[in-house]
Amino acid sequence: MVLGRGTRWLAGAMTVACMALIGPSASAPGDALVARPLPAGAVGDIVPNRVMTWNICNPCKESNVDRAAEIATYAPQVIGLQEACVGDVEKIRHQLESLYGLVYHVEYGMVLRNRGRCGGLPWHPGEFGQAVLSAAPMTDRVSVEYPDGGSEDRGYMAVTTMVGGRSVRVFNTHLAHLRQEAVRADQVGVLATEVARHDRAIVLGDFNAVPDAPELTGIWALATDTDPMCRPSPTGACEPTTDWHSKFDYIFLRGIVPLEHGVHPTPYSDHHLLHTDLRPT
């Protein structure tokens, strides 16, 4: 069938209109299913005692194939993602399996519906917030929106899953933006109250605060950072986790001993990947 000029123009206009409605996160450039070669030293299979946190940056219009390759390079048992859209996480998860053979379960802690960030139709915008990928099944998911998110809705999620052969409660959070210290202090209070209920817990996330910030006192009282040199002190030797050379990203451990950790800058986010290996059972 040959379309007339007017019909072709109408079809093209409808395509453009649909793309505008879907929004920026629906199909990032480079999302075609072509595996990006992993660097030398990539682990090749899931590391059962490894956990990771990564703020994947949104809206940054990065390729989910590239995001999947970054995760596959280190292949943690558990990954906590912040600034995540459900659609992007589903693509990342699918690509981890189809391109690299890494199979993950997923749970969400969404706090916002936003077409500008996550695409979708005006009456059904995409969901934005936190997500946890785990190689083992997850149970007892909770998703809590903080009473005061500050300039944007924020919250935490928690799941129970297996890390290093043992059951553990895993939290994933994203605290309020900069210059909202009092808001973050209240958010830490809400989070710490829940973390304190567990003898063994892992707290992942972007806390938007440096280690000696007063608003983090409540979490430091319960847990230690995976980096043994990092302390809530101006003299603490804390490795930066952002492009602006500040440590904002943490893996806090309660009742769990770390073995080693790594901080990995990436061109696909303004936050570095942070992972840690934990002492197995």
Rank of each mutant, 00 (worst) to 15 (best):
R115W: 01
C118V: 04
G119Y: 00
G120H: 01
G120M: 02
L121D: 07
L121Y: 12
H124L: 03
H124V: 05
P125L: 04
P125V: 07
A131L: 00
L133W: 01
L133P: 05
A135N: 01
A135R: 00
A136D: 03
P137F: 03
M138F: 00
M138L: 06
D140E: 01
V142L: 02
V142H: 04
S143H: 08
V144Y: 07
E145G: 08
Y146L: 04
D148G: 01
G149M: 02
G149A: 02
G150R: 05
E152V: 06
R154Q: 04
G155W: 05
G155S: 04
Y156H: 07
M157N: 01
A158K: 06
T160C: 05
T160G: 06
T161D: 03
G164L: 01
G164P: 04
R166A: 13
V168D: 07
R169S: 05
V170Q: 12
V170A: 09
N172P: 11
T173K: 08
T173Q: 14
L175N: 09
L178C: 04
L178A: 09
R179S: 10
E181C: 10
E181I: 15
E181D: 15
R184T: 13
Q187S: 14
Q187T: 08
V188H: 13
V188E: 13
G189L: 11
G189M: 10
V190H: 14
V190A: 07
T193E: 15
V195Y: 13
D199R: 15
R200M: 11
L204Y: 03
L204D: 14
G205L: 06
G205I: 02
D212Q: 13
P214T: 10
G218E: 11
W220R: 10
W220V: 05
A223V: 13
T224W: 02
D225H: 14
D225Y: 12
T226M: 11
P228I: 10
M229D: 15
P232K: 08
P232C: 05
P234I: 10
P234A: 07
T235S: 13
G236V: 12
C238T: 10
C238I: 05
E239L: 09
T241I: 00
D243S: 12
W244L: 09
S246F: 11
S246G: 07
S246A: 07
F252R: 13
G255D: 05
G255E: 05
I256P: 02
